[in-house]
């Protein structure tokens, strides 16, 4: 098992199913509803026969009783194609030093969630893909099934490093176009970007009927700006340093953050996406458990 997967946690999460919030179009049969009628065991409805229908699907008993031809339709269950989009911009390197002395960055947190989701999906027989967003050598693994493919994805995840800035909105547009319709797109990001650019990207994904889940990862210190003295802030995405005096700007900082969060919430509601605002001081097991349960 990969280093970023904790067997204990995965064994506890394994009983929880990963469900889609809408019909999916998979490539094999599976446990998810499909928008097309198929040959599963679950009856759906009768309809009149029209020339060209498969005569094997005629209900002869109904013809015997009513002397009319009916076609018997059943639900079509399918698997889902899940693509994990991992933001690997410089801001994902932010994190606080934990009591053990190591720094748990946002990217680490995201990688663990991504790996866990990939493992869970793969265990369910779903297709899993991976897109990482950063300037240098972005990874773009299309969704496929199988243990080898999962291993490849986990290997790619382990190798991802965050650097400089990256264009999340362009990457999302690319994912929306490349993925077949009705796939599941899981976005792991801090969303520190212009929301005017994010909105069309999300709407693009939704227009392609993708089931979009966004893990918005935030460190509490970023929200409160609780410094007690002036601080020189080094931009993780390579911008020039900023000198900030909390006495002068902490109030306005909070106000800006609130407006930003409210805008994202509004965007999520309007776009009907599965939006999760995540505090990084929580464990990814809790986050995933809550995510999976809400979809069950």
């Amino acid at each position: 098992m990969s280093k970023i997967l904790d067997p204990d946690i995965m064994s506890r999460l394994a009983p929880l199913a990963l469900n889609s919030r809408q019909p999916m179009l998979g490539d094999v049969s599976g446990r998810h509803r499909s928008p097309v009628r198929g040959s599963s065991l679950e009856f759906s409805e009768y309809r009149n026969y029209v020339p060209g229908d498969d005569t094997r699907r005629l209900d002869w008993r109904a013809w015997a009783r009513s002397d009319r031809y009916f076609i018997k339709e059943f639900e079509a269950d399918t698997n889902l194609r899940m693509s994990i989009v991992l933001d690997a911009s410089g801001s994902m390197n932010y994190g606080l030093r934990n009591p053990q002395g190591s720094v748990a960055t946002r990217l680490d947190f995201s990688k663990r969630i991504a790996a866990a989701l990939a493992w869970l999906a793969s265990e369910q027989g779903e297709s899993v893909g991976l897109s990482t967003i950063h300037k240098n050598q972005p990874v773009d693994v299309p969704p496929r099934r199988g243990a080898r493919h999962l291993g490849h994805i986990l290997e790619q995840l382990e190798q991802v490093n965050a650097d400089e800035d990256a264009d999340l909105s362009t990457a999302l547009h690319h994912v929306a176009d490349r993925l077949p319709r009705r796939s599941m797109v899981v976005v792991l990001s801090d969303l520190f970007m212009d929301l005017r650019e994010l909105k069309p990207a999300i709407e693009h994904l939704r227009w392609r009927r993708h089931d979009v889940a966004v893990f918005h990862l935030l460190e509490p210190s970023e929200l409160e700006f609780d410094f007690d003295s002036p601080v020189k802030l080094l931009d993780l995405e390579g911008g020039s340093p900023l000198l900030a005096d909390p006495a002068m700007m902490s109030e306005s900082y909070r106000q800006v953050v609130l407006e930003y969060l409210d805008s994202i919430t509004e965007l999520a509601n309007r776009s009907n996406i599965d939006y999760h605002r995540i505090r990084m001081d929580r464990t990814y097991e809790e986050v995933l458990a809550q995510f999976l349960l809400r979809r069950s």
């Binding site: 410089g90 801001s91 994902m92 390197n93 932010y94 946002r106 801090d190 520190f192 970007m193 212009d194 460190e219 970023e222 700006f225 410094f227 003295s229 002036p230 601080v231 020189k232 802030l233 080094l234 931009d235 993780l236 995405e237 911008g239 340093p241 900023l242 000198l243 900030a244 700007m249 902490s250 306005s252 900082y253 106000q255 800006v256 953050v257 930003y260």
Partner: peptide, 15 residues
């Protein structure tokens, strides 16, 4: 001042 890495640059600029 002390120095700290910071990700939410856009909030600082707006504030």
């Amino acid at each position: 001042h002390k120095t700290a890495p910071w990700a939410a640059r856009q909030f600082v600029l707006q504030a």
